[in-house]
Design a binder for these strands. Sequence first.
RNA 1: GGGGCAGUAGGGUAGCCUGGUCCAUCCUAGAGCGUUUGGGACGCUUUGACGGCAGUUCGAAUCUGCCCUGCCCCA
Length: 477
Amino acid sequence: MEEDTGVLPRKDDFSQWYNEILWRAEIMDVRYPVKGLYVWYPHGFAVRKRAYGILRDLMDRDHAETMFPLLIPETEFMKEATHIKGFEDEVYWVTHGGRNELDVPLALRPTSETAIYPMYSLWIRSHTDLPLKLYQVVNTFRYETKHTRPLIRLREITSFKEAHTVHATREEAAAQVEVALGLYREFYDSLRVPVIVSRRPAWDKFPGADYTIAVDTVMPDGKTLQIGTVHMLGDHFSRTYDITYEDANGEQQYVYQTCYGISERSIAAVISVHGDDRGLVLPPEVAPIEVVIVPIIVGKRRDEVLSAASALEEEFRKAGFAVKLDAREMRPGAKYYHWEMRGVPLRIEVGPRDIDANTVVAVTRSGKKTTLDRRGVVEGVCSILALFGEELSQTARQAMAGRITVAATLEETAAAVKNGVAVVHWCGSQECAEKIEAAVDASIIGSDIRSDLIAVSDGPCVACGGNGTSALVARTY
RNA sequence: GGGGCAGUAGGGUAGCCUGGUCCAUCCUAGAGCGUUUGGGACGCUUUGACGGCAGUUCGAAUCUGCCCUGCCCCA
């Protein structure tokens, strides 16, 4: 007997599952012949489009969208020392125009600080120009030497949403960090992806930042995935790029800056957190098709069923749903599997029995079956989808909660990180961090934890016994 | 960064060590025709490949070299 799950590996085998679902659900094609660059299938890109629509709407509340060039002259790129150190090993350089060598090599942006800030220096004159909050959604390039992986570790990040804000004071900039974190929380709430927010250790912060606060989620194999970062840049870059404003007293002052970003790792998170053995499970908010209508065509009532299905489609379309009528010449079961693999949240079935009874059958991606009265079907579907989204949030949240373990000893920590995230007490020293990391084969990913799933407390450092406070230890992507 | 395994049609595999035929093979793959359709339909016909570049050879999926790509494990 063939298994009904088809050929998708079980999600328990997460790595295999992830590799396969990407092409079976038509998210990414890995066969592009350059390492670390992958192709978005239209369906994957449609998910991206909706997710980034949400992100843009959030940013547009008080940021303006812009677009800076991909190429950065070496002379600008090399100005900020710590920033360069963080990126120089993974920068692609354009050295030729045609056959001629360029006088000044051009970097493909690994991130855009060095492209944007020289322009900020020109644009910002007075305190009335502040605050300035811009963002762009662009591709960036990093010559990754580690194992590349679609959507997760890329040489071309195709979907980097980066925001760059400028403020008159350090306090304002610090406040903006909190605003950004709030936006990112909202974004991931919409994607139904639970997150943990924490401050990265000093050695793991963004090159050139005062501090970095990261947004992580936990993948099904227990490793954490960083899916957003917010950086307090202080005045490091403004001193390097000479970004100053004239204050109310007529004095020149350096500005304070922040930057923060989200990439297509957000899509990897949606896929991985919600997907199951049958394929993708998409929250209605990001599903390119929210409702698929499958007509149950039986012999002589074919035309009758098809026109009933078309009428339904039209009704959903008018109500604003992303709806698809699947009128292909296939058996209904084959269509169910097809759309389940692609993550469609709700399937509507209409057949002769429904026409006779004046009903339709609605089945969610989680398998919940409801018979709806044909009249008021749109309202019925609305509430089913809203509930389905809520359930995704709850399920994902519980799954993440189950992967967080408080650990009091190194042995407990080592056991905890095999399943997910360990919460330990840590004194904050790099020496102890290294001890812990060596002992448990995982990394300190952050302290100053902000998560309603984690109670923060003080206690003896798990490595040295000195005064410590809660920190996260995990294996990471 | 280190190590290993692998690339054969849309997908999965055999063949390779030991070079050669008339034909690879399976599929939830493609095209066509017919009968079907409330959880992956069936029959018949048919299409299509050896990752790339060079080399050895009368002849290369198979041998040699280089390159590219993917996956797994370790740092």
